[in-house]
Structure formats: C-alpha cells, structure tokens
C-alpha cells in the first residue's frame, strides 16, 4: 500500500480558497471547547441541585430527582440528542418550538440542542456523584450543622457540600473529560465540531491518516489540560490534616 504522507495539507487552502484546512480544524476545536465547557457549567449546576434533592428529607423531591437521574442516565446519548434537536421543537407549546425553528439560525439551533443534550445527560451523572459524596460524609455532620442553628439549606451550603465536592473531585474529573468525548456525537446533527471537521478534512483532502492523527492529538491535548486544571483544583481545595492532605 503506497500511502502518500502529506503533512502540508493543513496549510493548503480549502476549495473555496478563503481559509486553510488547519483553520477548519481549529474552528472545530473551538466549537468543541465552547460547547463542552458551557454544557459542563450547566451540568455542574443542574447536577448539584438534583444530587442535593436526591438526599432531601422530602420523599416527593428525592423521588423526582431519582426519576430525573434514571431518565437522563439510562437512555442513549444519541437518542437524547435527536430528541432535543428533532422532537422537542415539534412538541414545545406556546409557539416556542416554532420560534426555535424560525428565529434562530440553523447553527444556533444545532449548538443549543447539542449543549442542552450534553448538559442534561452529564447532569444526571454529576447528580449521582454529588449524592454519593454527601452520603460518604459522617452522618453527624448534618446533625452538627442543624444543632448550631443552621437551616437545612445552610447546612448543605456551609457544612455538607464543601466536603462532598472535595471528595468527588476525581469522579467529576472523569465526567468533565467525558463531556468532551461525548460532544463528538453532536456531529450527527450537523454541528461542525472537532470530529466533524476531521471527517470533512478526510473527504476533501483524501489524507485520512493526517486528519485523524491531528484530531486525535487535539482531543488528547484537551485531556491533558483538563486533568491539569482538575489537579490544581484538587490541590487548592485540599484540607489540611484530612485524607490525603497534610
């Protein structure tokens, strides 16, 4: 097999001539990063809320939160994505669905659906971690917070969550990494993120190896940065005298 390696394709202009293939890749990288980061922030907020509700004394609230987790954790990501993008706009009431389809640019529609899909999917997983973190704390901590006169929300805010989040930094790191990997699914609704741009490069340049190697390296680079970030978070929040702290 006589494969002709040609790394210079990244600098060559795309067919329309206005930019280079490298610029395509980088714009895909940018979309992947913006999409994943915004989805991660929403997932953290939503997941924390649902995780807390799962430990709430009210049976109704914790049941509701459990149902939420089941739905978003136990259906395929691809099915969820199609639901957000194709199904939801058709069934949204009050003309919201039509507004979505008519007033937003196709690009915004894709991005919004992809972001919400990744955010909700990941929030269910974050919620499970938050619940586990709270559950891992000594039971007396909640009692101690309440006994000092904290309300239940104050007890969560000042006593339970600060320690619970510290405990779950490692599993949250892997959820954070997952959201970048999962974002590749969003190419199926036409969003030009990193994986989609990589495929486009293959189609246009007929240099699949170079394209996929470049895409792989970019995903790996994201991994390295995220792990570095989370390591800093872990070090910054380390509690002296506790667990691995000193």
């Amino acid at each position: 097999m006589g494969y002709q390696w040609n790394w210079s394709i990244f600098g060559s202009p795309v067919p329309t001539g206005e930019t280079t293939y490298l610029a395509w890749l980088l714009s895909g990288l940018q979309t992947t990063i913006v999409l994943s980061l915004s989805a991660w922030l929403v997932a953290l907020a939503l997941g924390s809320l649902v995780g807390v509700l799962r430990t709430a004394p009210s049976k109704a609230l914790s049941g509701l939160a459990a149902a939420y987790v089941e739905i978003f954790r136990n259906t395929p990501l691809l099915v969820q994505l199609f639901s957000w993008y194709f199904v939801l706009p058709e069934i949204l009431p009050f003309g919201l669905g039509d507004a979505f389809k008519q007033q937003l640019s196709p690009l915004t529609q894709q991005f919004l659906a992809a972001m919400l899909c990744l955010a909700f999917f990941t929030s269910a997983r974050v919620a499970e971690q938050v619940r586990a973190g709270i559950g891992a704390l000594p039971r007396g901590q909640k009692a101690a917070g309440l006994a000092l006169g904290f309300t239940l929300p104050q007890t969560y805010r000042h006593v339970l969550l600060p320690m619970a989040f510290r405990l779950i930094v490692p599993p949250l790191t892997s959820e954070f990494l997952n959201i970048f990997k999962n974002s590749a699914v969003c190419s199926t609704i036409g969003l030009l993120e990193l994986a989609a741009q990589g495929r486009q490069l293959v189609d246009y340049t007929a240099q699949p190896y170079e394209s996929f190697i470049a895409v792989t390296l970019l995903y790996l680079a994201i991994n390295v940065v995220v792990m570095g970030l989370m390591r800093i978070v872990e070090a910054r929040t380390r509690v002296p005298g506790y667990l691995g702290g000193k």
């Binding site: 000594p138 007396g140 901590q141 009692a143 101690a144 006994a147 000092l148 006169g149 320690m163």
Partner: peptide, 20 residues
C-alpha cells in the same frame, strides 16, 4: 427550630467539627 437550636448547645461523640 433553627432559632431554638441556636440557643441549645450540642456536643457529639465524634466531635463533628467541620473538617474544611
């Protein structure tokens, strides 16, 4: 209850200081 509890001190077997 929070107000009442704030006026009643409680000490636990396992101390329950806030570790962070």
């Amino acid at each position: 209850l929070p107000r009442l509890r704030s006026r009643v001190g409680m000490v636990f077997q396992h101390f329950e200081l806030f570790p962070h």
